[in-house]
Simulated assay, not measured.
Amino acid sequence: MKEQIRQISIQLFAEKGFKETSIQDIVNALDVTKGTFYYYFTSKEQLLMDIHLSYIDALLEKQKAILNDGNRSSREKLYDVIFLLIHDIEKEGLSAKVYFREMRNLSEPHFSKIAEKREQFRKQIEAILVEGMEKQEFRKDLPVDIVALGVLGMANWSYFWFNPEGRESDRAVSDIFMKLLLEGLKGSQ
């Protein structure tokens, strides 16, 4: 039942928004009582926090596996992280939408806990970039923190526009992003 509450809430939060969705909306959609909801969650915000933690913890675990793969170059690791983000947005769909759009509805200390995990994800992208710079796979004249934020901006914003049934697949979008990162928009002269 806890997972059913999570899933219907993700759907409702994605469709209506967190603030516009009431606990009554959630229990009505499941045809259960408010008591059932409160058995699993103390509040709607605790439910939102649970959704956020599940999403970011799964991303961090997958990112850790990428980082620890000693057989991959820094370029391959960066590609894998970009693909992870795009693919996860495709795979998780509404969860990704809720994760990216509804964080602002978390109060302290929930907000800080999620922000800390997001920061960890970003720092691990920075580690890939530094490793690549040291191995001369990436240029060294750009600030690592801004490049990492650029990677996250490109990949994370795709939750808003990426359509898995659209013109380009998650793999193709990841390829485009990598080409843009590594080659820029420089034309042939």
Rank of each mutant, 00 (worst) to 15 (best):
D57Y: 13
M49Y: 14
I89S: 03
K91A: 13
S54F: 15
L182Y: 07
A155T: 03
D145P: 07
K16G: 04
D88I: 09
E90G: 09
G150I: 04
I56K: 02
F111E: 02
I146D: 05
K117I: 03
M178N: 02
K179D: 13
I86V: 07
G17S: 06
K34M: 05
G184S: 08
N71C: 14
R101T: 07
A172V: 15
L185S: 14
F177W: 05
R122S: 12
S54V: 10
L30T: 02
S74M: 00
N156K: 11
Q4T: 07
A58T: 13
M103T: 14
K135W: 14
V173N: 06
V173Y: 04
E102W: 13
I51P: 00
Y55Q: 02
L142W: 10
I128H: 04
V32Q: 00
D170G: 12
E102H: 10
E3M: 06
L78D: 00
G93S: 08
G93R: 08
F13Y: 06
G166E: 04
I82S: 04
G93E: 05
S74P: 01
G70E: 11
R104M: 12
K91E: 11
L181G: 05
A155K: 00
L60T: 06
V173H: 03
S169V: 09
M103K: 14
I146G: 05
A58N: 13
V130I: 14
K186Y: 11
Y159M: 09
K2W: 04
A127G: 08
K62R: 11
L85Q: 13
H52M: 12
L48R: 02
Q11L: 10
K62F: 13
D31R: 11
A172N: 09
